[in-house]
């Protein structure tokens, strides 16, 4: 029962997060913004459509959306909401989570290259590079969580952490911060990528799926939302544990993550493509620093 509630919460969040981001952006720009269920309706509409395939593509192109969505679903089933346990929980599931994300990424890269387009390769190449660079940051975040909780199991990590000192609050907040940064990279948001851009040459994620339509595009969109919700949930869990707050606030914090992304997107321009690698490596550097801070803190507490 508990597991099903967890799953439902994350699914609802997955639907809410993209809307919240775009609503925030609209409000800050003085627009009225879309209806709260607009993205949902759009996707339903996509699911009702037929398909157009390029004669260049092979089966890889047709299977990739299913692989992307499938891996995102399974990854989502490992994320807890506060102390609520997820469906899949075992020691070392943090490792599997990272690799499931990598699986989805690899599937989309191959699909993009399958079209033989001169643009989609750009997106695929960038996605592969940014994915490779952000991977250490993700592992460092999970490593820090494992270090301070003493567990390698997502559902235990957030229930075991005792954030009783100011130091620990700071560490947990940095984890939340890094998780939000990982969200921006993995989901292709500003400053890495602008999902609303209209020039193929400068896109990352959007250009990879240029040739998809109908059901396939819907699958990729749903997969994206679930992936986003999973990472946002990690951030929200970290912030909630930092202040030892109630579980209902976890959901609010997940939406807060979306609002933060929206605000950042409203006030920042996207970075130059060449600067992105530096940006991502900086995240990794902060994550490494965070790990060592947590490490020294723990050693001192023990002493």
């Amino acid at each position: 029962m508990e597991q099903i509630i967890t799953t439902i919460i994350i699914i609802i969040l997955a639907l809410l997060i993209p809307n919240t981001i775009s609503l925030t952006k609209a409000k800050l720009a003085g627009r009225r913004g879309v209806r709260i269920y607009q993205y949902f309706i759009d996707t339903i509409k996509l699911l009702r459509k037929g398909a157009v395939y390029s004669p260049t593509t092979t089966a890889v192109f047709k299977i990739a959306p299913s692989v992307y969505l499938g891996s995102s679903i399974v990854a989502m089933l490992m994320i807890p909401v506060g102390v609520l346990h997820p469906i899949f929980a075992f020691n070392g599931d943090v490792i599997m989570f990272c690799y499931l994300m990598a699986l989805g990424r690899a599937a989309l890269i191959l699909a993009a290259m399958d079209t033989g387009s001169s643009f989609e390769g750009m997106g695929a190449s960038r996605e592969a590079l940014y994915g490779a660079l952000i991977e250490p940051a993700l592992f460092l975040t999970l490593g820090t969580l494992a270090l301070i909780s003493g567990s390698t199991n997502f559902s235990d990590i957030f229930s075991l952490i005792q954030s009783d000192s100011a130091n620990m609050v700071i560490v947990m907040l940095i984890i939340g911060y890094i998780s939000i940064k990982i969200f921006t990279v993995e989901m292709g948001r500003i400053p890495i990528d602008d999902p609303k851009t209209h020039l193929e040459l400068t896109m990352v994620h959007e250009v990879m799926i240029l040739d998809y339509c109908g059901v396939d595009l819907a699958f990729i969109n749903i997969g994206n939302w679930l992936k986003g919700a999973s990472i946002a949930m990690i951030a929200a869990n970290a912030i909630t544990t930092a202040f030892s707050l109630n579980i209902s606030l976890t959901i609010a914090f997940a939406l807060l993550v979306a609002i933060i992304i929206g605000v950042v997107e409203s006030i920042y321009a996207r970075a130059k493509m060449a600067r992105n690698a530096t940006y991502i490596l900086t995240i990794t550097a902060i994550a490494l620093l965070m790990f060592f801070v947590a490490f020294t803190l723990l050693k001192e507490i023990e002493l």
């Binding site: 037929g50 398909a51 157009v52 395939y53 390029s54 299913s66 079209t115 109908g214």
Partner: peptide, 29 residues
């Protein structure tokens, strides 16, 4: 479970597309 989900998704998609219009068109240039 993941393989099963992927297979199910792929099957559903093909099932859905069976009654719809599936056309071929060159890659977006």
């Amino acid at each position: 479970v993941m393989v099963a989900i992927i297979a199910a998704l792929y099957y559903t998609k093909n099932r859905m597309l069976r009654s719809r219009k599936v056309t071929e068109s060159p890659t977006w240039g």
